Simulated scan of single mutants.
Amino acid sequence: MSGTVNLTELREGGPQDLADVSRIMADAFDPRFGEAWTSAQCMGMLSLPGVWLVIASLESNDVGFALARSTGEEAELLLLATRPAARRRGVAGALLRAIVAEAQARGVSQLHLEVRSGNDAVWLYRREGFEKVGERKNYYRGKMGQAFDAHTYARELR
């Protein structure tokens, strides 16, 4: 086998990680789509019950994160981001699997997520067992006012 295997390290995150989360979002999300959250939005979400944050590192550098919340038997992946330099190295898959595992540990039966149409992450979600269950026309607004559809995906966890 040739090539280098990169091991993604995962850890539980918290409010102390918001500066890193903001930097990762700035690197990961194209500003023309307006998908990145502010630090205040992330802090507000982290203060709610049932919310968890997972941070991914490669070679001791934080390169990605996933933020999710659960209520009852359902959970939602709110954000998942990987720095461009760390993409195609298994980071996003490791983060998504960590969210799925934590949701299962919390007794969740279905995990939802929403993604902008045309987002390259759709291949990952489909590979990990998510199926498209809905669509919201013109849901996202980009920096220049353009509208983008939102696609909703779900995965049964039981």
Rank of each mutant, 00 (worst) to 15 (best):
T4N: 03
T4M: 02
V5F: 09
V5S: 01
N6W: 13
N6C: 09
T8E: 01
T8M: 01
E9Q: 07
E9I: 04
E9A: 15
L10N: 06
R11V: 06
G13P: 02
P15K: 14
Q16R: 14
L18K: 13
L18T: 15
L18I: 15
S22W: 11
R23I: 04
M25W: 11
A26L: 13
D27K: 15
A28V: 08
A28Q: 05
D30K: 02
D30C: 00
R32S: 03
G34Q: 00
E35S: 00
E35F: 06
W37T: 02
T38W: 10
S39T: 14
S39W: 09
Q41M: 14
C42M: 10
M43A: 14
M43I: 05
M43Q: 08
G44Q: 07
G44W: 11
L46C: 11
S47Y: 03
S47T: 05
V54Y: 07
V54C: 00
S57F: 06
S57R: 15
L58T: 02
L58N: 01
E59T: 04
S60Y: 08
S60W: 11
N61W: 06
N61M: 10
D62R: 15
D62S: 14
F65Y: 15
A66M: 13
A66S: 12
A66L: 08
S70F: 15
T71I: 08
T71Q: 04
G72E: 02
G72W: 14
E74Q: 15
A75Y: 11
L79K: 14
L79F: 04
L79N: 10
T82I: 07
P84A: 05
P84N: 03
A85I: 05
A85H: 11
R88C: 09
R89A: 07
G90F: 10
G90W: 14
V91W: 12
G93L: 01
G93V: 03
A94L: 05
L95E: 00
L95T: 03
L95I: 08
L96W: 14
R97T: 11
I99L: 01
A101Q: 12
E102M: 11
A103M: 03
A105C: 06
G107I: 04
G107Y: 07
V108Y: 07
V108P: 04
V108S: 00
Q110D: 00
H112L: 12
E114I: 06
E114R: 12
R116I: 08
R116P: 02
S117Y: 03
G118F: 09
N119T: 02
D120A: 14
A121I: 06
A121E: 00
L124T: 05
Y125E: 10
Y125N: 08
Y125A: 08
R126A: 02
E128R: 13
F130W: 13
E131Q: 08
K132S: 12
V133Q: 00
V133E: 02
V133S: 05
E135R: 15
E135M: 12
E135C: 10
K137W: 08
Y139K: 01
Y140N: 04
R141D: 03
R141E: 13
G142V: 10
G142Y: 05
K143N: 04
M144S: 04
G145P: 05
G145T: 08
A147P: 04
F148M: 06
T152D: 00
T152C: 10
Y153F: 15
Y153L: 11
A154S: 15
E156N: 08
L157A: 11
L157V: 12
R158L: 13
R158P: 13
